[in-house]
Amino acid sequence: MIYGVKRVIKYVLGTDVAGRGLAVYSDDTFIVSYPRSGNTWTRFLVANLVYAGQPVTFANIERLIPDCEAQSNRYLKRVARPRIIKSHEYFDPRYKKAIYIVRDPRDVALSYYNFSRKYRQIEDSYPLERYIGDFVDGRLTSADWGTWGENVGTWVAARKGRPTFLLLRYEDLIADTQTELAKVARFFGVDASPGELRRAIENSSADHLRELEKKEGSEWITTKNKRPDIPFIGSAVAGKWKSVLPDAAVEEIESAWGNLMAQLGYELVTRKAESAETQLAATAVLGEQPE
């Protein structure tokens, strides 16, 4: 029996997408998040900071900070080391050094809905409520990355507290980009002046990225051949769910991941977080001294 001829040929040529099968080097640094959580923005911020001196665009971002779920192992092998790699994987013990960006799942769900329309995974008429059910139960096309709770929970539980793990909240990045970017700079060992930080922020602003998307969106691997009428760069705000997301959907998300959300500082509106008894569990898993 012959298994997937196309896949075998791709494997021999090394042109298969790396994804979970990425060959990891010990000096790699990863920018990890669940999809629609600010990864692209962070990628531009980091690229503008670490590779300052050249304009960062959708045309060169795959060379500067490649996407291991879009590029092949062969491509990734040719990237100069130490590499900075973008990923949406759930916890991977081989990633030694990682920035993890977390975003309020109520906003993630909304953003993901538009993204799925852009990718033609769902029709415009697909009801939002049903989509939220898919999102919570892990029935999305990209279910291989786990649910929001699985993706966030495994990374936070396994790595929080280690000096090689930087946890960022998208909402903090929005509220005070400069302070958060300064943390990123320290994490990369980059000595950046306030002026340099500001420049990196300007060169990565949502408006700037939108302009770039208009010009280069048809070329970038992530947006190529996707619906051009729905932008990849969304509204880039926090808390949109409050006005847009139906109450039932909010409740569904909070009942699935309320404890983890509360722990990350996302206020619940439909329920209370669990009592002290279950807190022990969180402390046990999360409260780790640097190993």
């Binding site: 649910t147 709770g149 699985e150 929970g153 936070v156 539980a157 009942s255 699935a256 991941w257 309320g258 404890n259 983890l260 509360a262 722990q263 977080a273 669990e274 279950t278 807190q279 022990l280 569990a281 969180a282 402390t283 898993v285 999360l286 409260g287």
Partner: peptide
């Protein structure tokens, strides 16, 4: 950190 991550997470 205030709340359980493990209960009702999935």
């Amino acid at each position: 950190f205030p709340v359980s991550a493990m209960d009702g997470l999935v």
